[in-house]
Write a protein that binds this DNA or RNA. Structure first.
Lengths: 210, 210
DNA sequence: GGTTGTGAATCGATTCACAGCG
DNA sequence: CGCTGTGAATCGATTCACAACC
C-alpha cells in the first residue's frame, strides 16, 4: 500500500517519537510542553515539531505550549493507539524473542495476540508468556485475533509464503525483518527493518577517507 | 554527524539492497543485469536504480546492462565493505543474540569483533561463538578491535552512558536500538532502529476508517 | 515576553523524457 | 533496437520568517 493522502510518513515516525517522550515518567510534572522542549528531547528542530503537530488541528496555546495530557491523547488517536491493538508474530527465533520481550508494548497500547512458529520443539509450548502455535494454524487463528498488523521474523526462505498467508487472513500491515523485498497487493503496507542495511550505511559514512 | 556531501542517505540504503541482491546465489548465472531486473528484485523503479548507480561513475553498458561482478565490487567499495569490517556489540539480551545469529554478516564482510554485557551470569562465558566481555572493559578493548561501528542493544537507561564510552573509544557510527534519542558529537552518526515506531506507523495506515 | 501556526522559500529526492551509445 | 545516463520538471519535506495570539 502506498501511504496515500493525509500525513506524510516521516511525520508519522516523529509523531510516534513524540508520543514515546510523552509517556516517560518525568514529563507529567509540567502541565504544558513547548515545541522547543519536545524538540530537545527528540533532537528535531522546534519548527518541525510544530509543523508535525499542526497536521491535525491546533491545540497548542500560543505563549504557553501544548497540554501534555491532551497532546498524548491526540497523538495516540492519530496513530490509532488509543485502544489496544493486537499484533501477530510469526517466527520465534532470537529475533522473535527479542520482539516479545521488547519494553514498551503496553505503553503504546500494542499487544501480541498470537505467536506462530514451525519448530516442533516450540509448537505447543509456552514461551515468555505466550502459547506458541503451529504456523499451519495461521489461516484459522489470525482472523480471530482481529489483528491488522503482523511482524515477520522468519528466515528469508519462508518470508514470502508466510506473508501471502497473512495477507489472505486480512493483515494489512507487515513489519518485515527478512532481508528481501516482499511482494504484496497494493492494499498492504510493508515496512522493512534491516540491520545489515543500516550497518552498511554507517560503514560508508564512517570511512576514514572522504 | 550529518551525512554531508557525497551520496544521499536514501541512495545508500538502496545501494546496500542492490548489493544484497547481487550476493544471492542465482544472480551469477548471467554476466549482466539491467536496471530493470534489479528494480524488479528490489521493487524500486528502474530509473531510480540507474540514478543511484550513476552517483559513482558510469560502468553500465548501454544496450546490455551492468556487469554483475563489477557492480558487486563497486557497491562493496562505496559501502566500504570490500574488506572485513569489525563491529562491536554491547548488550546480549534477546536482541543482542538475534544480532549475533543474524544471517548475512559474512556476505557483507562485516564481523562482530567484541561482545559486551554487564550481566555476571554472561561475562566470561562463551555465547554463540563469542566471548562475552565485561562492559567495564570497553575503554580498554574497543580500541584494539579497530571498529568504527557499534550496535547498542542495551536497556534505554544504560544507552547514553554506553554511547558516551563508545564515542570516547573512537566509535564513529552507532546503531541504536534503545527507544531514545542519543546525544553524540557532530562527528558521530547515529542510526536508530525502533520496532515500536514502525508498528505505530503501520497502525495509522491500517486503520479502518480513512 | 513567549510560543504557536503557517505562507513562502529552500532544499532534496524522485520521476519524466530523451539524447547518447553499444 | 535496447538500455544507460542525465538534464529538466516535479514532487515532497524542511526551514525560514513572521504574523497572530495568550
Amino acid at each position: 500500500m502506498t501511504p496515500r493522502g493525509d500525513i506524510p510518513s516521516p511525520t508519522l515516525e516523529r509523531l510516534a517519537e513524540y508520543l514515546r517522550c510523552l509517556t516517560e515518567t518525568d514529563v507529567d510534572v509540567e502541565e504544558f510542553i513547548s515545541s522547543d522542549q519536545l524538540g530537545k528531547r527528540t533532537r528535531w528542530p522546534a519548527e518541525l515539531v510544530r509543523r508535525d503537530l499542526s497536521y491535525f488541528g491546533e491545540f497548542g496555546r500560543r505563549g504557553v505550549g501544548y497540554n501534555v495530557t491532551l497532546l498524548r491523547h491526540a497523538l495516540a488517536r492519530i496513530l490509532e493507539l488509543n485502544r489496544p491493538q493486537p499484533v501477530v508474530l510469526v517466527g520465534l527465533g532470537n529475533l522473535g524473542r527479542a520482539l516479545l520481550t521488547y519494553p514498551g508494548w503496553d505503553r503504546f497500547n500494542l499487544f501480541i495476540a498470537a505467536v506462530f512458529d514451525t519448530d516442533p520443539r516450540l509448537v505447543g509450548k509456552r514461551v515468555l508468556g505466550h502459547d506458541v502455535l503451529n504456523a499451519d494454524a495461521i489461516p484459522e487463528v489470525v482472523p480471530t485475533t482481529k489483528a491488522r498488523m503482523a511482524m515477520l521474523s522468519v528466515p528469508g526462505s519462508a518470508a514470502q509464503e508466510v506473508a501471502d498467508q497473512l495477507v489472505a487472513c486480512g493483515i494489512r500491515g507487515l513489519l518485515n525483518f527478512a532481508p528481501l523485498a516482499l511482494e504484496v497487493p497494493k492494499t498492504v503496507l510493508v515496512r522493512n527493518v534491516s540491520f545489515i542495511t543500516e550497518l552498511a550505511v554507517l560503514s560508508h559514512y564512517t570511512a576514514q577517507e572522504q
